[in-house]
């Protein structure tokens, strides 16, 4: 246990927590910008993946300071699994959309008048 703690401490003496948070915040912003500006459905999905992974980095980074040590990592694992499930459903729906509209551009898929 002491040895383990030593590893954690020495690792985080090298890379401070803030650096992880900066990377995560940058990824999150990139993801949001992609979702808002890009018109291709697949690219929008990629932007969403970036947002999820930004949250994952945060979770794993914070997890090192958790008293139970594992909860953040656990959460990140679940997020990865859910993201895969969601991507599967999303791609299936995109196939359907392509079948009817012959395009993956979100602006052209606009027949319902909300």
């Amino acid at each position: 246990m002491n040895f383990k703690l030593f590893i954690y401490n020495s690792t985080f003496n090298m890379i401070p927590l803030e650096h992880f948070l900066f990377v995560a915040a940058a990824l999150f912003t990139l993801g949001v910008v992609i979702v808002i500006t890009k018109r291709n459905v697949i690219v929008v999905l990629m932007g969403i993946e970036l947002i999820l992974n930004a949250a994952n980095i945060n979770l794993v980074a914070f997890s090192q300071y958790d008293s139970a040590l594992m909860r953040g990592n656990m959460f990140a694992l679940f997020v990865i699994v859910i993201a895969a499930a969601e991507a599967a459903v999303a791609l299936a729906i995109i196939l359907q959309v392509y079948h009817y509209f012959k395009t993956a551009n979100i602006d052209e898929i606009n027949e319902l008048k909300g």
Binding site: I93, V97, H99, Y100, F101, I109, N110, L112
Partner: peptide
């Protein structure tokens, strides 16, 4: 068509 658009 409507269903697919709603879904996406």
């Amino acid at each position: 068509r409507g269903g697919a658009e709603a879904g996406i």
